[in-house]
Design a protein around this nucleic acid. Structure first.
Lengths: 208, 208
DNA sequence: CCGCAATGGTGGTCAGACCACACATGTCTC
DNA sequence: GAGACATGTGTGGTCTGACCACCATTGCGG
């Protein structure tokens, strides 16, 4: 007897077809996708299976459902993903040190990229921001840095790790305006050694 | 009239209670959680709602369901992280260059950590492996490096990026045994500059 | 023209049914 | 007695149909 049952779970199959449907129809963030009942009919799966697929996508922040209106594609560039995870991960002590360590590595990576990619206009902008802003928040600073680094993937990774990080420490990191200023100046000079040492001073890193 | 309907969606409420249940009972990765039917009864929600909650958690990689057996807590350190995000992002040409760039950064990060953390025993083992193995596959080599770096989170990120990387290039990266050997030797000498230059030569990187 | 009730479409939830699978148990055969 | 087989039970997997809650639109009456 021929197996009519695909080995993959139905809800994953639905997600797959839904994705094809989205690309085929050229749907973009904000657009509405077909209703649950219509998907159920078009794809030949039960509505409950369709809903399971939608819940999975919703949890990932890829879609948004509004009762009485419909289901919409979200701008997945700002999905959360980790908020949930962080509450789970807290227990493992080793995981924490991994998070700290990795955040610092990624930030250094961002600095390295920024070092190569920042234009003088960017440097002016950054310095100006540091000088005029009320208080230099660490996450705001690196938000800018990694933007300048012009690598969206690295940016995403950093944001995710940052969320972990902030869920692990009681209060957000806070260093002095002077530290950020010297960091930004080292960047403007395109001086790698100075940049790294400025970062280390900021973080009070002991290693090399 | 008193609103009996919680404003939050039921499946989120179920996730919340499930989480409490897990911490209260001290369940750990690998442990089995109550069956769908039991959860449905204990929490007073329909089974389909329970299933929607489980699908959401499964999509995040927090649980694993096995037909006929039950639902189990996963080692959340294996969670997807960037996985889904990138499958959507891949279409973008800019995203590809981001992947390449980021993989290289992460590999350098791994090297830096390994530089600080590897024991002499590790160095022996690595050198021996390079000398005796049939062919030095790039992913195998860095698999080891990032293991030595002893940062599970970084390791997970690397594995994910590597998968994308390999899905973007026709054939896996392949460099000469000598290149890996000089890289390993530089590591053994704990010489940072030599290590980085060896990596750059391997990758034929133009930048500093 | 405005305001409002009716209507239809949408997601949200539930109950029940049946299937597919894994495992433990019991039973039969040799 | 030991091994092979059958069976039962519990589990996740899926579908159906029903009903509720909410939203937007329509169209009617003022």
């Amino acid at each position: 007897m021929i197996s009519l049952v695909s080995t993959t779970k139905v809800y994953l199959e639905i997600i797959k077809q839904l994705r094809e449907m989205i690309t085929d129809d050229g749907l973009k963030p904000g657009d509405k996708i077909p209703s649950e009942r219509e998907l159920s009919e078009r794809l030949n799966f039960g509505r409950s299976s369709v809903r399971e697929a939608l819940r999975a996508l919703e949890m990932l922040g890829l879609i948004e459902t509004r009762r009485g209106e419909g289901t919409f594609i979200r701008d997945f560039r700002d999905h959360r993903l980790v908020q949930l995870l962080s509450t789970f991960i807290l227990q493992d002590e080793k995981a924490k040190t991994d998070v700290f360590e990795t955040v610092e590595l990624i930030e250094i990576d961002g600095l390295q990229l920024a070092l190569r990619k920042m234009k003088s206009k960017d440097h002016e902008e950054l310095l100006n921001w540091i000088r005029t802003v009320d208080v230099v928040r660490h996450s705001d600073f690196f938000y800018r840095i990694i933007r300048y680094a012009d690598n969206y993937l690295l940016f995403r990774i950093w944001v995710i790790l940052k969320e972990y990080y902030e869920s692990l420490v009681p209060e957000p990191a806070q260093y002095s305006r002077e530290d950020y200023l010297s960091l930004a100046e080292a960047l403007a000079k395109r001086d790698e050694a100075k940049t790294l040492s400025a970062y280390r001073q900021l973080r009070n890193l002991s290693f090399k």
